[in-house]
Design a binder for these strands. Structure first.
Length: 467
DNA sequence: CAGCAGGGGGCGG
DNA sequence: CGCCCCCTGCTGC
């Protein structure tokens, strides 16, 4: 076996991966989860989140939702941005006074390396640099500079996405440093929900010595190869310089409601079954092309695919709807109703006690929820103030634009009511059975249909009790 | 049958 | 004026 075994190594695999990953994040391609925080929306990748946080990993495992929107409470957007940089780049610079807040946020989200010990991918044969236990506070930077020695293991097929992403992180860690002096806010009062995950072996922070991240390219050139794989054209060649200083803010959709991006398929359905599916169409078609282009080292002409305006009221401005149609057409084979169906809201509902605790519980126990009504609503209002309000209200007066779907209305009550579709909030509970409804009228109708007699009796009892 | 949304009316600040 | 409640109609299963 050894005799015929050739190890093909892509010399610049890491750097290319990082570069592409950086780009897809910047361009919001392939994002499959949206973090909502402080009224901002951060389209990101489950892969990255789950790699960097078992908390996210478990969350994603418990919902098959294609594109969940995770509302982060008790975390400030600046902290989240820093954490995202940390997760994507593997490194973030933070000023001293902001550190505690960042750490707290990291603890809430159980970010590996910051809040919980990192674990080395099992199949990665690290050449075993010194692994030192990280002490969170002062290792933000050194953490990011960790191991790269395992570059050479590409002959192993990577079947674990986590492992793969860990590699990316390693790559990212080697990239240019992201200087975030504005990483902010230590005022977070987040309760540390860090759990004892110390069973995880605490391999980490092979503090790769100080070789400067920017020297990645050269450093990687040092890697030995058994058989030089055909390298990509020069996408990676210019990587250190091409990779822009990662600014999470750039990735933030400041005006998410203007975007085609967040499209939530809310195909309603029988009783509890509901597709909680957020389709992210952030120019994915373009993105795919771009991805290939990136891999091929070509510059995609579709750099600016961005998000088109959502269009008012979801009817869609001609441009946006055209864009969306184009995207959907483009990705027709990818995004089908079947896929929508594969996103089973009931799955989420089944775990709702875990995933959707009350806001109070959330505040106390965890920092994230998948669609928290209050947050979503508040964020929607914030956004509409920022965007819809700015753009639409001029024409139509106060306009409420759903953050998750094209729905919009002038009526705040209707808007609240609509929001419950996405939050699955059913505040109206039947007294006589376990039926719950999002609308009072539905409950009323239900009671009328099924519990007319019981209701009559109950009413009599109530009257007597009052007497 | 249930979910959803448009719209009207009442009420309180 | 904003909010809430309610009625009503439409839609899909």
């Amino acid at each position: 076996m050894d005799g015929g075994l050739l190890s093909l190594k892509w010399n610049n695999h890491r750097s290319t991966f990082f570069y592409v990953l950086s780009n897809v994040r910047k361009k919001e391609c392939y994002t499959d989860v949206t973090l909502a925080c402080d009224g901002k929306f951060y389209p990101v990748h489950k892969l990255v989140l789950s790699t960097c946080s078992e908390y996210f990993e478990q969350m994603f495992e418990q919902t098959q939702c294609k594109h969940p929107v995770i509302v982060l409470k008790d975390i400030r957007s600046e902290e989240l941005e820093s954490l995202l940089s940390y997760m994507y780049v593997g490194e973030v610079n933070v000023v001293q006074e902001k550190l505690s807040g960042l750490i707290k946020a990291a603890e809430c989200l159980r970010i590996k390396g910051l809040a919980v010990p990192d674990e080395e991918p099992a199949t990665t044969k690290s050449s075993g640099g010194s692994r030192e236990k990280r002490t969170s506070d002062n290792s933000l930077s050194s953490e990011a500079k960790r191991r790269r020695q395992d570059d050479g293991s590409s002959s192993q097929r990577q079947t674990s996405s986590r492992e793969e992403t860990s590699r990316r992180r390693a790559d990212q860690s080697s990239s240019n440093k992201f200087n975030r002096n504005n990483a902010s806010s230590s005022s977070s009062s987040v309760n540390s929900s860090r759990e004892n995950r110390d069973s995880v072996s605490d391999h980490r922070t092979t503090s790769r010595d100080a070789s400067e991240p920017n020297e990645l390219h050269h450093a990687q050139q040092d890697n030995d190869i058994e058989l030089k794989a055909e390298e990509l054209p020069d996408a990676h060649e210019d990587l250190p310089s091409e990779v822009p200083p990662e600014d999470p803010g750039d990735a933030v959709k400041q005006e998410p409601l203007d975007l085609d991006a967040v499209y939530l398929s809310d195909s309603n359905s029988a009783s509890d079954t509901k597709d909680m599916l957020v389709e992210d169409s952030f120019g994915e078609a373009d993105g795919q092309q771009h991805f290939m282009d990136e891999l091929l080292g070509q510059n995609s002409a579709s750099d600016q695919h961005g998000m088109g305006d959502y269009g008012e009221g979801g009817e869609g401005s001609s441009s946006s709807s055209a864009a969306t149609n184009q995207q959907q057409q483009h990705m027709g084979a990818v995004w089908t109703d079947d896929l929508r169906d594969s996103c089973n809201w009931p799955d989420l509902m089944d775990h709702r006690p875990e995933l959707l605790p009350s806001s109070a519980q959330l505040s106390a126990s965890s920092a994230a929820s998948i669609i928290n009504y209050d947050s979503l609503y508040e964020e929607s209002l914030q956004h509409e103030n920022k965007t819809i309000g700015r753009r639409t209200s001029v024409l139509r007066g106060k306009r409420h634009q759903c953050a998750c779907c094209p729905y919009s209305t002038n009526d705040v009550g209707n808007f609240r009511r609509h929001t419950r579709i996405h939050t699955a909030e059913k505040p109206y509970a039947c007294r006589f059975c376990d039926y719950r409804s999002a609308q009072s009228n539905n409950l009323k109708a239900h009671v009328f249909r099924h519990h007319k007699q019981a209701q009559r009796t109950q009413t009599v009892d109530d009257v007597q009790r009052l007497k």
